[in-house]
Design a protein around this nucleic acid. Structure first.
Length: 551
RNA sequence: GCCCCCGUAGCUCAGGGGAUAGAGCGCCGCCCUCCGGAGGCGGAAGCGUAGGUUCGAAUCCUACCGGGGGUACCA
């Protein structure tokens, strides 16, 4: 009996009461009711507030409505007891056998446990990272690499077709600054005032020279062009390689430059003009974003005839829509939140629905702490912490987990010393250790020749119940992580579940001791342990973190 | 000035209106005769302030205070 099944059972009770005229529901029975696990153990296995929610509409008082529901729900096979408490809460105790069945169901579902059809049929375009190829990927981009990829995995688990996309800004002034910085390096000059410093600039410059030695003899313009094309390519390859090592691969690497060269930008602007949403002023073409909620109108074609940055976004968005994506999600750092309003306005200007066709997720900043002190970063000074630095400091698993376990709305301080530790103070180890411990127990059981066997009615220990309920929560957690676009829920859930397992393990002997004859309880508990392994492995998988069998 | 995010235990953070607000770390005190003690048990300790909505607010609204980020015909 999972929370979802219980919710469905309650809905059925409400529908029956309504049909039999014992209850008047003007809006009909709800499609789902809230079922939660109460904090206090005395409040049962699950609790629902439906009576409080519906009493007013039904023209009755909460406790009377609760009584009606309790009488019917109590007759359900999987329900052992229903109590009415406080203002009208229904406290539900699930029959042991119904609760214990979950373990066998999880093992049977295996890698599919936790998945659903919640977003079946939806085509989702997930754009994240999209850092300019003017330097190694730094920590801000890495947060989205971890969160975005996890979100993609979560969407896939709930049935969506996901395309991961990286928008490659290879068209504007940043690239120009980058290539001039390379040129200065080759000529032995200081980095340009508005350019990039740092050792990587010299490394890239030397690498390009090694590949194309003739550029040294060319004039500045020709040399810079070689440095631009080769340097950007090398930088981009390095970013791709870093992300790949981080476990993140994109389906599409989209080049902004292509949009300009192919005429897609012009077509997008034409479309907006046909819709009456552009005008010319001061020699520039403006988009009427203000009437769609932006602070002011925005330039799309500058007075020098060049497309403004937004023009690429217009064309890119239109391209995604034409490729059949109903939902385009873009993940940006907080330093770009000012773009949200104009992007949403752009979406509306095309006649689309902001928030549905286009969704922008903002991730707050990441600060790194070393020896308790914040690491000051400056791209210009070359003191950036790159994705490779982070991985070599704490490893891929810890980095992905650390970046994905916090709400993206919060700026976070990551203590590199803590996340590098192989100990319990490190949350990723806490979860991975539980998985390793489970795996070890399953190996021992196999060595003993003890085979798991379902006896759900025997799993009646308090700690077994708590673990079973935690395991039963998993699909709901995945669903809410998808709906709310919040992968951190999965990480927090895994920590809770690992704790529930440790407490179970501490109280319930799984394998026979010494020469003890194996019993059905041993076999039943083994199913529960296997179910725990399944959930921990599936959950870690959603975060792109390994589930080690030994550590 | 205006816009966005945040303010919860000593620290790092969870808590999508519900009952006595949680976890990890740190601190104090416990638990190994066998499945991994990288574990478990107990204890001290908290919702920035002031109003409002609600049967019920950490959660929603308003104001203020504090921290971070943003506010280009840059990308």
């Amino acid at each position: 009996m999972t929370p979802e099944q219980l919710s469905a059972a309650i809905v059925e009770v409400l529908a029956t009461l309504s049909a039999e005229g014992e209850l008047t529901l003007p809006d009909g029975p709800p499609s789902a009711v809230t079922v939660e696990r109460p904090r206090q153990r005395e409040h049962g296995d699950y609790a629902t507030n439906v009576a409080l929610q519906l009493a007013k509409k039904a023209g009755t008082n909460p406790r009377a409505l609760a009584q009606l529901v309790a009488d019917r729900l109590g007759q359900h096979d999987g329900v052992a007891a229903v109590d009415i408490a406080g203002p009208g809460f229904l406290n539900i105790t699930v029959a042991a056998a119904a609760q214990g069945e979950v373990a066998g169901q999880i093992v049977a579902a295996g890698a599919a446990y936790g998945s659903s059809e919640l977003m079946a049929g939806e085509r989702v375009n997930l754009e994240f990272v999209s850092a300019n190829p003017t330097g190694p990927l730094h920590i801000g981009g890495v947060r989205w690499a971890a969160v975005g990829d996890a979100l993609g995995r979560i969407f896939e688990a709930v049935g969506a077709a996901v395309t991961r996309e990286y928008y490659f800004n290879d068209h504007g002034a940043q690239i120009d600054r980058f290539s001039r910085s390379l040129l200065h390096s080759v000529r032995g000059l200081e980095a340009p005032e508005d350019g990039y410093g740092g050792a990587y600039v010299h490394e890239i410059a030397q690498a390009v020279v090694a590949r194309r030695p003739e550029l040294v003899e060319k004039d500045d313009a020709a040399a810079q062009e070689i440095l631009r094309s080769e340097g950007v390519e090398m930088m981009f390859d390095e970013i791709k390689r870093s992300l790949h090592d981080f476990g993140v691969d994109f389906d599409v690497y989209f080049h902004e430059d292509d949009l300009h060269k192919s005429g897609a930008v012009d077509r997008a602007i034409e479309r907006l003009t046909e819709l009456g949403n552009t005008y010319e002023q001061d020699g520039a073409v403006w988009l009427r974003t203000e009437q769609f909620g932006d602070d002011k109108d925005r330039v799309v074609v500058k007075s020098d005839g060049q497309g403004a940055y937004l023009s690429g976004d217009l064309a890119y968005y239109l391209d995604k829509r034409e490729r059949g994506f109903d939902r385009c999600l873009i993940m940006l750092g907080a330093d770009h939140h000012g773009y949200v309003a104009r992007m949403m306005a752009m979406c509306a200007a095309f006649g689309d629905t902001p928030g549905t066709n286009l969704e922008i997720l903002i991730g707050q900043m990441v600060n790194l702490l070393k020896d308790g002190e914040p690491l000051r970063m400056s791209k210009r000074a070359g003191t950036v912490v790159t994705i490779d630095d982070l991985v070599s400091a704490i490893g891929v698993d810890a980095a992905r987990y650390a970046l994905a376990r916090y709400s993206s709305d919060s700026s976070i301080d990551l203590d590199l010393d803590l996340w590098a530790k192989a100990g319990s103070e490190n949350p990723v180890y806490y979860v991975q250790y539980a998985h390793a411990r489970v795996s070890s127990l399953l190996r021992n059981a196999a060595d003993l020749g003890l085979a798991p066997a379902d006896h759900p009615e025997l799993l009646v220990h308090e700690k077994e119940g708590e673990l079973l309920r935690a395991l039963a929560d998993f699909p709901g957690v995945v669903a809410s992580a998808a709906t709310l676009r919040e992968p951190h829920r999965v990480a927090r859930y895994l920590e809770d579940t690992a704790g529930a397992y440790h407490r179970f393990y501490d109280n319930c002997r799984v394998l026979p001791m010494g020469d003890e004859e194996p019993t059905d309880l041993h076999r039943a508990r083994l199913v529960l342990v296997d179910a725990t392994r399944t959930v921990l492995a599936n959950g870690l998988g959603l975060l792109g973190v390994s589930a080690p069998e030994r550590m």
